[in-house]
Amino acid sequence: MSAKATRAGRSTGGERTITLEISRFRPEQDSEPVFETFDVPLRDDWAVLDGLNHVKDQLDGTLSFRWSCRMGVCGSCGMTVNGKPRLTCGTFLTEFGAGPVRIEPLKGFPVIRDLVVEIDDFLAKLSHVKPWLIREGEELPLTTEYAQTPEQLEAYKQYSMCINCMLCYSACPVYVLNPDFLGPAAIALAQRYNLDSRDQGDRLDLLNTDEGVWGCTFVGECTSACPKHVDPAEAIQRYKVTAAMRSVLPWARR
């Protein structure tokens, strides 16, 4: 990888600036990613994403990246910032002092272009764990809810907070080395339904496999990376206990 000459912004005269080293991959011209550097204004309330938008709007319209809500809930703008998977809308430029800030696509995923990665595999994994409420027998009429106490809600609530940003996959060395691993978010999502008092499904066959929970070696980085405190590492270890109990004691509950 080589760095090109820095391109300064037209509106940065006199203002404090910070250098962004942005990984570029243009499949028509690059055989592998190269770094390009840009100077952007360094303002106290600017997130890394604001810096990227400044580049896109004023310096180089060809830079490609995904973003949308810029309030940490749509899950689009995950990238590798100075080596760590982060939501760029919630990561402030001032965190990096004088800079530079190195921005790369999320590790562990094929790169389509610049900072945009392919996530089809991740979506297939989400679907794989049957992430919907499974009920047997008659459905209740639309005037009645399935009763669920606040305690029962609390039992799975944390695992329902995943925004599908994939930072946990990017942080997981198992996934990066073996893309067949079901991965943290998908297993946490399975647990979100497993632990929901309204769910009557059984996801043992999907999770109790080498590519499922047993693929996890418990590095714990998924939990450190998670911006929403879902704690996928916990979800996985808990299901290992469940799966082990059910294998030994066939009558054990899910």
């Binding site: 499949p27 080596g83 590790k107 389509i112 392919e118 060395p173 990066v176």
Partner: peptide
């Protein structure tokens, strides 16, 4: 629904466990 395009897949990193303190402690 997507047509395949050429993507960049980085080569396997043989010393991945040296990339972060957390990984090293794990190993």
């Amino acid at each position: 629904m997507s047509e395949t395009t050429r993507t960049y897949r980085p080569r396997r990193d043989r010393v991945w466990f040296l990339r972060s303190r957390a990984y090293t402690i794990f190993v």
